[in-house]
């Protein structure tokens, strides 16, 4: 790879990627801190980012895979569900989650193990999503997309608790927490906007950190807003 190319690319990335606006969520330590003026990508050209990390993150931001595996109906449902699991109405360019789930299923590359009795990765997702759609259809004629956000949240909460009406060939609560939610959070918190949101230092090679103690911050770390 050409480091110069990556450096230039980094600058261009920074100019067109909007930073998360989370100024409405400032708070104290226990309520969750706000780092509204922190953008982890601002470190792109600093010794906190090496070429490999730049290329990996650039690919994540710019080469979002096209949908190959899931059906249009599955994609629509998943998009709606993910908008409730990880809402991001404030972002002009939301973190894309469905395409990476589709990519994982297309490559058939899971985390390397599955619960005894559950079908393989693809089948678990297909059956879980179908059951979720069936669950929504039992609640109202418009299905999941016909529900208000409050109704959608109520339905998802019931699925999370395993309090379901439809036939679930994969256990509802397990599918919700250990398949759907965990995977969605994995993807969301793999994005620089999410790192900025929580004040994570992000990539740290070769520079690393110097100040390690309580309330100690290197100048290249997130500052509370």
């Amino acid at each position: 790879m050409n480091p110069m190319h990556l450096t230039r690319y980094g600058r261009s990335l920074r100019t067109h990627l909007p930073r998360a606006r989370n100024g409405d969520l400032r708070g104290n330590a226990t309520a969750g801190a706000s780092y509204a003026r922190y953008d982890v990508l601002a470190k792109w050209d600093t010794p906190s980012f090496d070429d490999l990390t730049r290329s990996v993150i650039a690919a994540r931001l710019e080469e979002v895979p096209p949908i190959c595996f899931l059906s249009p109906d599955e994609v629509r449902l998943l998009d709606l569900v993910l908008a409730r699991l990880l809402p991001q109405p404030e972002r002009s360019r939301p973190i894309p989650i469905t395409p990476w789930i589709d990519d994982m299923l297309n490559r058939n590359q899971g985390e390397g193990y599955r619960l005894d009795g559950l079908p393989p990765l693809r089948e678990t997702w297909r059956k879980g999503l179908a059951a979720l759609a069936a669950e929504a259809a039992l609640t109202g004629p418009g299905g999941f997309s016909g529900m208000s956000k409050t109704e959608q949240d109520r339905l998802l909460r019931n699925v999370q608790l395993g309090e379901v009406l439809a036939e679930w060939p994969v256990p509802a609560a397990h599918f919700f927490t250990h398949v759907l939610l965990k995977t969605a959070a994995d993807i969301y918190y793999s994005y620089p906007d999410a790192w900025s949101e929580i004040g994570f230092g992000g990539p740290a090679s070769p520079r690393g950190y110097v100040r390690l103690g309580f309330d100690e911050r290197d100048s290249w770390e997130a500052k509370r807003a």
Binding site: L25, G27, A29, T30, A31, G32, A33, S34, R84, L85, L86, P87, D153, L156, Q160, T177, H178, L181, K182, A185, D186, Y188, Y189, A194, E197, I198, G199, F200, A222
Partner: peptide, 25 residues
């Protein structure tokens, strides 16, 4: 950390995002 928070506390939606903002504390 998000895996621990989601699978053990069952948080999602803005409750999850809010909890994750405590990360540095």
């Amino acid at each position: 950390w998000a895996q621990i928070v989601t699978t053990n506390r069952g948080l999602w939606g803005s409750a999850l995002q809010q909890e994750m903002r405590k990360y540095n504390h």
